[in-house]
C-alpha cells in the first residue's frame, strides 16, 4: 500500500465530517466509506443515508443541539478546560500548521475544526513528516479526539457519523502506532 490511499482515507474522513453536500453524500462517497470500513475491520450497517437526513443529523451533532447533546468538532472545546472556541486547542493546532508553513483556508471555522486537523494529518502523511506527525498526534489530536469520540458514543448519534468516528479513531491509532514503531 502506498501513502496515497492512506492520505486519501484521511481526506475521506475529513470530507465525511464536513457538512453534507452533493459530493460527500454521493453514492460513490458512501461506497468508499463502506469499503474502507470493511478494510479496517469495522462492522457497520449503514445504508446510503438521505442527504436531508444527514443535514439534520450533522446540524444537531456538530452545529447546535437544543438539548446540549452534541459534540463540537473543535479541539479547543476539549483541551485546556476552557470549553471555548478559539482557546488553547486552536493555538496548538495553529502552531503545528505554522511549523510547515501552512495556514487553513476555512470560511469562518476555527483552525482546529476536525476536518481541517484530519486534512493536516493527510498532509503530514503525504510529505512523510514523521516527527511532526508523531508530535501532532501525541500532543494534540489524540489528546482530544478520544474525548470527542466518547461524547459522540454517549449521545448515540446517527449511525453514519458513529461509523465515521469509529473509523477515524481506528485509523488515527493505527497511524500513531505505526509512526512510533518506525521512529523507535
Amino acid at each position: 500500500m502506498n501513502r496515497q490511499p492512506l492520505s486519501h482515507i484521511l481526506r475521506l474522513m475529513a470530507r465525511g465530517f464536513s457538512y453534507p453536500d452533493k459530493e460527500n453524500t454521493s453514492k460513490a462517497f458512501f461506497l468508499a466509506v463502506r469499503q474502507v470500513a470493511d478494510s479496517l475491520g469495522i462492522a457497520h450497517d449503514v445504508s446510503a443515508p438521505d442527504q436531508d437526513e444527514l443535514k439534520e443529523a450533522y446540524t444537531l451533532l456538530f452545529i447546535n443541539e437544543p438539548s446540549g447533546r452534541w459534540a463540537p468538532p473543535f479541539s479547543s472545546v476539549y483541551i485546556g478546560g476552557h470549553g471555548l472556541l478559539m482557546a488553547e486547542g486552536r493555538e496548538q493546532a495553529k502552531s503545528f500548521y505554522e511549523e510547515v508553513g501552512l495556514s487553513p483556508a476555512t470560511s469562518g471555522e476555527p483552525e482546529d475544526y476536525l476536518p481541517v486537523e484530519l486534512d493536516f494529518v493527510a498532509h503530514l502523511v503525504d510529505t512523510e513528516s514523521k516527527g511532526l506527525l508523531l508530535r501532532f498526534l501525541k500532543e494534540h489530536l489524540l489528546k482530544w479526539f478520544p474525548c470527542f469520540h466518547r461524547r459522540l458514543k454517549a449521545i448515540g448519534p446517527h449511525p453514519y457519523y458513529m461509523l465515521l468516528a469509529d473509523m477515524t479513531s481506528r485509523l488515527l491509532n493505527l497511524i500513531h502506532q505505526e509512526v512510533i514503531d518506525e521512529t523507535t
Binding site: A32, Q35, L102, A105
Partner: peptide, 25 residues
C-alpha cells in the same frame, strides 16, 4: 493497513486530492 482492492477502487473514484483546507501561510 490492508486495503481491499475494492476499497482502493472506491477511493480512486473520488477526487480526494487536497481540497483546499490549507494554503501556504
Amino acid at each position: 493497513l490492508k486495503l481491499s482492492a475494492s476499497a482502493c477502487a472506491a477511493l480512486a473514484a473520488l477526487d480526494l486530492s487536497n481540497k483546499g483546507f490549507f494554503k501556504a501561510a
